[in-house]
């Protein structure tokens, strides 16, 4: 079986692997790199549990091949906290009871992080539309929305963040 050699920056760290072309990105992360925070909840790119950032844009890693990530940068839930300091979204999900079983949570946080990069001060409607590709079976979304609102409040005041978000939109 022919394999391809790929180099992927995962959570800031250069990683390499020899993979079958058919290997899904989510399996590269989970089974090869042992980053099991990214979950699999469906086969049809509906549930969003596998959401990661690929070159800064949110993506469903069950619907990407590992080889497509060659030369690119991937951020997973494991890359969100800085040591003991939680990302504001992680803190907000905890504070606002934005999770119950925790299975959709990593994908939800990754999608929310992308959403807040695009729109630092989203309305409730924009938040709900922004996580339309992420299914949660436990929370009824109410506290997920509140979590994202809390994090938006904490992330928003910085001038740098606003500039960075604007730059992302243009790029």
């Amino acid at each position: 079986m022919t394999t391809k050699h790929i180099s992927v920056t995962v959570n800031g760290e250069a990683r390499e692997a020899d993979v079958e072309p058919r290997l899904l990105l989510v399996h590269l992360l989970r089974d090869v790199f042992m980053l099991t925070g990214t979950h699999i909840g469906c086969d049809t790119s509906n549930c969003g549990a596998c959401t990661i950032h690929l070159d800064g844009e949110s993506a469903k890693s069950c619907t990407l091949l590992a080889v497509q990530a060659d030369g690119k940068s991937v951020t997973t839930i494991e890359g969100m906290a800085s040591g003991a300091t939680l990302h504001p979204l992680q803190q907000a999900f905890w504070d606002q009871h934005g999770l119950q079983c925790g299975f959709c949570t990593p994908g939800m946080i990754m999608q929310a992080a992308w959403l807040l990069k695009q729109n630092a001060d989203p309305t409730e409607t924009e938040i709900r539309a922004g996580i339309a590709g992420n299914l949660c079976r436990c929370t009824g979304y109410v506290n997920i929305v509140k979590s994202i609102q809390q994090a938006a409040g904490e992330l928003a005041p910085s001038e740098d963040a606003a500039t960075e978000a604007a730059a992302t939109i243009q790029a």
Binding site: S45, G48, T51, L54, E57, S58, A59, K60, L64, Q111, W114, L115, A129, G130, I131, A132, G133, N134
Partner: peptide, 9 residues
Amino acid sequence: IGDPQIRNW
């Protein structure tokens, strides 16, 4: 079309 992640890619 689809959802935000799908529209990204």
